[in-house]
């Protein structure tokens, strides 16, 4: 009886995921292993090797972005969970507020802020601060002899720093939310008990709060890493067309080169990579005695 009820309840989602998740995934696999004429071919898979730098760069950037979001989000989420309920509500709304706006618009706005003659450079000029460059930018040999002093700019756009910044900015709420959720649910009496039993502050965190918050952290890492590693809009706009991540390569294969086979093969690798990392993360969560995560 119970079993049949479950099947019944699951049916809408099962149908949905079959049509919109499983079938498209199969199509990706089919395209990856065929050529333009539709016959079996491993050409696209073989060609992937040429894109290893591209993959490396994407993974590196999104790892850095994930670590930064974690460093920002974790203490914030912890502190927030200790405040009054009203403050928590308001703060959470403020965290979510930017997400009410479209990601494309937010990223485009950052382009205008970070551009050569953008708001940030104008601000820095007004306060007489002109950092020469921003994380790996080309040196500040970009000062035109005839340019008015006010126009001598710092370079932000088109640098790895700008792209990573864009990822952190856009995906930070995805890190804060799950961590905050587990922190808020945490039973305060556990901390009191640990204190009573003579545990010092650091050990309370290391042996109690950290393990208990792990599911949220892992969920957050996945939710930031996955969209970062596959992004193309952020790298295109904040990278000034100079930084090509794997998402850009896939978009290019699909949109301008009409090479669906290679595009599918690249996407397939990306998906496998994400699945493997989620699997590892889940194992990690299990071994620390907490339940796995749902993404």
């Amino acid at each position: 009886m119970k079993r049949s009820t479950n099947v019944f309840l699951n049916a809408p989602y099962a149908v949905w995921s079959a049509i919109f998740v499983v079938v498209p995934l199969l199509i990706v696999v089919v395209y990856a292993f065929t050529d333009a004429e539709g016959s079996f071919s491993t050409d696209s898979i073989v060609a992937l090797w040429e894109y290893r730098d591209n993959f490396q760069k994407s993974i590196l950037y999104s790892l850095v972005a994930t670590v930064i979001t974690l460093i920002i989000a974790y203490p914030f989420a912890y502190a927030l969970s200790k405040t009054s309920e009203k403050t928590q509500r308001i703060q959470m709304m403020l965290v979510m507020l930017p997400m009410w706006m479209n990601l494309l618009i937010r990223t485009y706005s950052w382009m205008n802020i970070l551009d050569h003659n953008g708001i940030l450079n104008q601000l820095l000029t007004t306060v007489n601060l002109r950092p020469a460059s921003f994380l790996g930018a080309a040196a500040a040999g970009d000062l035109l002899p005839s340019m008015p002093l006010a126009l001598k700019p710092a370079t932000f756009l088109g640098t790895p720093g700008a792209v990573i910044f864009g990822m952190v900015y856009n995906y930070l709420p995805y890190m804060i939310l799950p961590i905050y959720t587990v922190m808020a649910k945490m039973d305060g009496s556990l901390v009191e008990a640990a204190r009573d039993l003579g545990c010092n502050g650091f050990n309370v965190w290391r042996r109690l709060i950290l393990p208990l918050s792990m599911p949220g952290v892992i969920s957050g890492i996945t939710m930031v890493f996955v969209p970062s590693v596959s992004t193309f809009y952020i790298s295109q706009k904040l990278g000034n067309g100079k930084i090509m991540l794997i998402g850009d390569t896939i978009e290019r294969q699909m949109q301008t080169l009409n090479n669906y086979n290679l595009g599918a093969a690249l996407s397939l690798v990306l998906m496998v990579m994400i699945l493997v990392s989620m699997f590892i993360m889940n194992r990690f969560a299990d071994s620390s005695g907490e339940g796995g995560i749902v993404v």
């Binding site: 205008n112 551009d115 080309a138 000034n240 067309g241 100079k242």
Partner: peptide, 23 residues
């Protein structure tokens, strides 16, 4: 040209040139 290039753009060129962001 790559090392001296500020960026590779299409429609973004409007914002960049109108705002004096590139020469």
């Amino acid at each position: 040209q790559s090392p001296i290039l500020q960026g590779r753009v299409m429609d973004e060129v409007f914002n960049k040139m109108e705002g004096g962001n590139a020469a």
